[in-house]
Nucleic acid binder design. Structure first.
Lengths: 117, 117
DNA sequence: CTCTCATATGAACATCTGTTCATATATATA
DNA sequence: TATATATATGAACAGATGTTCATATGAGAG
């Protein structure tokens, strides 16, 4: 009958119950974490920030950010999977752009917070 | 005199130059990535979401989220270091809350994007 | 001062992540 | 078809990350 105290102790039952009712679905929270995680890497956020200004191809991003072509390509794959960027092909060149104006809002929210210190 | 092609090839010089001028400081972008990275974990985003509703102590968070006391405490440390949460002591109990209403904005921006699919 | 309990912390460990390197794919051009 | 170039991809590896476990710290109660 060994029960660790803190696993079970709830100091403010009413608060916990009230908040529990207001909490969004677990799935949605996990999805939100997964989305924001994609913004949480220097290379990726630079790509996002760059694409906020103009659509660009892999070589341009590579030169602009001073990151290898392979690294850019790998990160673009991550961004694609998270549906943050879309692309169009024109001959040999593939142009990437942000999938959605919404993406900018998330970036801005983070950036503004950083600038307010 | 070996130069890999893509490291140097810039297909759209003018675009790259223009975007480069508009890019924020490297530091700020890295800081933004570091900030958003903190939101990119299921446990932490749940803590943030919970504290959006009410200030809570470690035990309550542990019970609410069904995560061990130790894990909650470790994550609160991360959140503290990123200045996302603040705390006040009342006897044995330490109450955590969001440091800033701004934090909610970032969460909401991500959450809303998730809900729009 | 001692006991209890809320919280913090350090080490260990398994997993995840981002880059590099080598190579493959796809498209245009000669 | 052969070659050049833009991009993608898989394996490998080092470093980061999140949890657990054991233990420490700090404050109130007795």
């Amino acid at each position: 009958m060994e029960i660790e105290k803190c696993e079970v102790t709830v100091i403010h039952e009413n608060v916990v119950r009230a908040v529990k009712e207001q909490m969004p679905d677990e799935d949605k929270l996990v999805a939100t974490a997964e989305l924001l995680k994609v913004f949480g890497d220097p290379t990726r956020i630079k790509i996002i920030c760059a694409l906020l200004k103009a659509e660009m191809c892999v070589c341009d991003l590579s030169a602009l950010l001073d990151v290898s072509q392979s690294a850019v390509s790998h990160q673009l794959k991550t961004l694609k999977q998270a549906r943050l960027v879309k692309y169009r092909r024109d001959g040999k060149v593939i142009y990437y752009s942000l999938d959605d104006e919404h993406i900018g809002r998330i970036f801005e929210a983070g950036y503004e917070h950083v600038m307010e210190d």
